[in-house]
């Protein structure tokens, strides 16, 4: 075993952290788009669609992310789609994010007073017009803080993808530990890296939330 300096460890973790960031971004953006679809289905006029989406959300909120990841990874290969760890990670985190964001946003949409729907239908607006021009702009203000808050959960969630072999911060930590036999230092550093990614977002979410409360 050759000697690996602390700087080497930090440098390698930094390189791996890029993948954590990239995966989080992809999952957040794709999950956000899919989450909008979940939201629309969840507040749609069709009871069966609302119920189906309820189950979709329950499925993701009621099972471990790790299991979702395994099912994506192994399940899709049954129908002949072989996913790389990166693809499986991105796909399952996207689905995971869509369910959580859809549910968070539904809460925000429902927090918009009923009178707003009634007033806008009195103006002969259709469902999508009501959403687009009346409800969503108001819901969006409410949604910013919890959405930022969820991004922290998502970043932490990416750690699980190390288990199917996707090389991001956690996996890099494990690999470096195996090479250096310095688990205390390495995992300590990995934790600090995650903290540096997540804490600013947590602070931002809290600040936004306070601002919203003060405004009301």
């Amino acid at each position: 075993m050759f000697d690996i300096s602390l700087w080497d460890i930090v440098r390698n973790l930094l390189l791996a952290a890029r993948w954590t960031v990239l995966l989080s971004l992809v999952a957040f953006i794709c999950g956000g788009i899919a989450g909008l679809a979940v939201l629309f289905a969840r507040v749609s006029a069709f009871p069966w669609l609302r119920r189906a989406m309820g189950w979709y959300i329950e499925l993701f909120q009621g099972t471990p992310l790790l299991m979702q990841l395994f099912l994506c990874f192994f399940g899709l290969s049954l129908v002949g789609i072989e996913l790389s760890p990166w693809e499986a990670a991105a796909l399952s985190l996207t689905l995971f994010a869509s369910a959580f964001l859809g549910e968070i946003w539904r809460g925000c949409v429902e927090a918009v007073p009923k009178g707003q729907w009634e007033a806008s239908s009195a103006l002969a607006m259709g469902y999508f017009q009501q959403m687009r021009y009346v409800v969503l702009p108001q819901a969006m203000r409410l949604a910013v803080a919890p959405t930022v808050g969820f991004s922290v959960q998502l970043i932490k969630g990416t750690a699980v993808t190390s288990i199917i072999g996707f090389i991001e911060l956690t996996k890099a930590g494990t690999m470096i530990t195996n090479a250096t036999f310095r688990p205390f230092t390495v995992y300590g550093l990995v934790a600090v890296f995650y903290f540096c990614l997540c804490y600013p977002l947590s602070l931002l979410a809290r600040r936004l939330e306070r601002k919203l409360h003060a405004a009301r």
Binding site: V152, K156, G157, V190, Y194, F195, Y199
Partner: peptide, 12 residues
């Protein structure tokens, strides 16, 4: 604790 993954806490 709230800003680091559970998996890392476990490994640590």
């Amino acid at each position: 604790i709230r800003n680091t993954p559970f998996l890392i806490q476990l490994f640590f």
